[in-house]
Amino acid sequence: MTLSSPPEPTRDLEVLQNDLCDALLTPKSRAEMRCLLQDLCTPAEIRTLSERWHVARLLDGTDLPYRDIHEATGVSTTTVVRVGRFLRHEPHQGYRRAIDAMRPNGVS
Protein backbone atom coordinates (compact mmCIF):
# COMPACT_ATOMS: atom_id res chain seq x y z
CA MET A 1 0.00 0.00 0.00
CA THR A 2 1.20 3.49 -0.81
CA LEU A 3 0.27 6.38 1.43
CA SER A 4 -1.30 8.86 -0.94
CA SER A 5 -3.00 11.17 1.54
CA PRO A 6 -3.18 11.65 5.29
CA PRO A 7 -5.59 9.32 7.06
CA GLU A 8 -8.93 10.54 8.31
CA PRO A 9 -9.69 10.08 12.01
CA THR A 10 -11.81 6.96 12.48
CA ARG A 11 -13.07 4.49 15.03
CA ASP A 12 -13.96 1.93 12.36
CA LEU A 13 -12.19 -1.23 13.52
CA GLU A 14 -11.97 -2.70 10.01
CA VAL A 15 -10.26 0.43 8.68
CA LEU A 16 -7.90 0.47 11.66
CA GLN A 17 -7.04 -3.22 11.31
CA ASN A 18 -6.50 -2.94 7.55
CA ASP A 19 -4.14 -0.03 8.08
CA LEU A 20 -2.24 -1.97 10.76
CA CYS A 21 -1.99 -5.04 8.51
CA ASP A 22 -0.60 -2.87 5.72
CA ALA A 23 2.01 -1.46 8.12
CA LEU A 24 2.96 -4.94 9.36
CA LEU A 25 3.61 -6.03 5.78
CA THR A 26 6.22 -3.30 5.22
CA PRO A 27 9.32 -4.57 7.11
CA LYS A 28 11.88 -6.24 4.86
CA SER A 29 13.92 -7.86 7.61
CA ARG A 30 13.70 -9.22 11.14
CA ALA A 31 15.50 -6.08 12.38
CA GLU A 32 12.95 -3.80 10.70
CA MET A 33 10.06 -5.83 12.12
CA ARG A 34 11.60 -5.73 15.59
CA CYS A 35 11.81 -1.92 15.35
CA LEU A 36 8.19 -1.65 14.24
CA LEU A 37 7.01 -3.95 17.04
CA GLN A 38 9.01 -1.99 19.60
CA ASP A 39 7.31 1.21 18.46
CA LEU A 40 3.83 -0.34 18.30
CA CYS A 41 3.81 -2.50 21.42
CA THR A 42 4.78 -2.34 25.03
CA PRO A 43 7.48 -4.77 26.17
CA ALA A 44 4.74 -6.84 27.86
CA GLU A 45 2.72 -6.99 24.63
CA ILE A 46 5.77 -8.10 22.65
CA ARG A 47 6.48 -10.78 25.24
CA THR A 48 2.86 -12.01 25.12
CA LEU A 49 2.86 -12.18 21.32
CA SER A 50 6.23 -13.93 21.33
CA GLU A 51 5.05 -16.47 23.91
CA ARG A 52 1.87 -17.23 21.95
CA TRP A 53 3.89 -17.80 18.80
CA HIS A 54 6.30 -20.07 20.69
CA VAL A 55 3.39 -22.07 22.12
CA ALA A 56 1.85 -22.43 18.64
CA ARG A 57 5.14 -23.81 17.29
CA LEU A 58 5.49 -26.19 20.25
CA LEU A 59 1.93 -27.45 19.81
CA ASP A 60 2.49 -27.95 16.10
CA GLY A 61 6.00 -29.38 16.19
CA THR A 62 6.05 -31.56 19.32
CA ASP A 63 3.87 -34.03 21.15
CA LEU A 64 4.22 -32.16 24.44
CA PRO A 65 1.04 -32.07 26.53
CA TYR A 66 -0.40 -28.66 27.40
CA ARG A 67 0.70 -29.01 31.05
CA ASP A 68 4.32 -29.71 30.02
CA ILE A 69 4.32 -26.67 27.73
CA HIS A 70 2.98 -24.57 30.60
CA GLU A 71 5.66 -25.86 32.98
CA ALA A 72 8.52 -25.46 30.48
CA THR A 73 7.57 -21.97 29.27
CA GLY A 74 5.69 -20.39 32.16
CA VAL A 75 2.84 -19.51 29.78
CA SER A 76 -0.52 -19.97 31.48
CA THR A 77 -2.47 -23.13 30.72
CA THR A 78 -5.36 -20.89 29.64
CA THR A 79 -3.12 -19.34 26.96
CA VAL A 80 -1.81 -22.73 25.87
CA VAL A 81 -5.39 -24.00 25.47
CA ARG A 82 -6.44 -20.85 23.60
CA VAL A 83 -3.50 -21.06 21.20
CA GLY A 84 -4.24 -24.74 20.64
CA ARG A 85 -7.86 -23.95 19.83
CA PHE A 86 -6.90 -21.24 17.35
CA LEU A 87 -4.19 -23.44 15.81
CA ARG A 88 -6.49 -26.40 15.28
CA HIS A 89 -10.13 -25.37 15.27
CA GLU A 90 -10.79 -21.71 14.55
CA PRO A 91 -11.45 -20.68 10.95
CA HIS A 92 -8.87 -17.85 10.75
CA GLN A 93 -5.90 -20.26 10.51
CA GLY A 94 -3.37 -17.47 10.99
CA TYR A 95 -1.05 -19.63 13.08
CA ARG A 96 -1.32 -22.49 10.57
CA ARG A 97 -0.53 -20.30 7.57
CA ALA A 98 2.47 -18.70 9.27
CA ILE A 99 3.86 -22.02 10.51
CA ASP A 100 3.45 -23.61 7.08
CA ALA A 101 5.03 -20.60 5.36
CA MET A 102 8.10 -20.89 7.60
CA ARG A 103 8.71 -24.55 6.72
CA PRO A 104 11.46 -25.13 4.16
CA ASN A 105 9.03 -26.42 1.52
CA GLY A 106 6.22 -24.09 2.62
CA VAL A 107 3.65 -26.80 3.37
CA SER A 108 2.67 -28.98 6.31
Rank of each mutant, 00 (worst) to 15 (best):
A56I: 05
A56T: 00
A56N: 05
A56F: 08
A56G: 09
A56W: 12
R57P: 04
R57T: 04
R57W: 02
L58C: 03
L59P: 02
L59N: 07
L59Y: 05
L59E: 03
D60S: 13
D60H: 13
D60N: 14
D60V: 00
G61E: 08
G61H: 11
G61Y: 02
G61A: 05
G61R: 12
G61C: 09
G61W: 03
G61F: 04
T62V: 02
T62H: 09
T62K: 03
T62Q: 06
D63S: 13
D63Q: 15
D63K: 14
D63A: 15
D63E: 15
L64V: 02
L64D: 14
L64Y: 11
L64C: 07
L64A: 15
P65F: 13
Y66G: 00
Y66W: 06
R67V: 10
R67N: 05
R67G: 05
R67Y: 06
D68S: 13
D68C: 07
D68E: 15
I69A: 06
I69Y: 00
I69N: 07
I69H: 09
I69K: 10
H70M: 08
H70V: 07
E71D: 13
E71G: 00
E71K: 10
E71P: 01
A72H: 02
A72C: 02
A72T: 05
A72E: 01
A72F: 00
T73H: 05
T73C: 00
T73E: 00
T73V: 06
T73G: 01
G74Q: 02
G74R: 09
G74L: 04
G74E: 06
G74F: 04
V75N: 04
V75R: 00
V75F: 06
S76A: 08
S76W: 01
S76N: 02
S76Y: 04
S76V: 01
S76P: 00
T77N: 10
T77K: 12
T77D: 10
T77Q: 12
T78C: 11
T78V: 15
T78Q: 13
T79P: 03
T79Q: 09
T79D: 08
T79A: 11
V80W: 10
V80S: 05
V80H: 08
V80G: 10
V80L: 11
V81H: 14
V81E: 14
V81K: 15
V81T: 15
V81I: 14
V81C: 15
V81D: 13
R82D: 15
R82F: 14
V83G: 06
V83E: 09
G84R: 08
G84I: 10
G84C: 06
G84L: 11
R85C: 10
R85G: 10
R85A: 15
F86P: 06
F86Q: 13
F86R: 13
F86Y: 15
F86A: 09
F86W: 15
L87S: 06
L87T: 08
R88N: 12
R88L: 11
R88T: 12
H89T: 09
H89Y: 08
H89C: 08
H89N: 08
E90D: 13
E90N: 08
P91V: 01
P91I: 02
P91S: 04
P91L: 02
P91W: 02
P91H: 02
H92E: 12
H92K: 07
Q93R: 11
G94D: 05
G94C: 03
G94P: 07
Y95W: 13
Y95L: 06
Y95K: 07
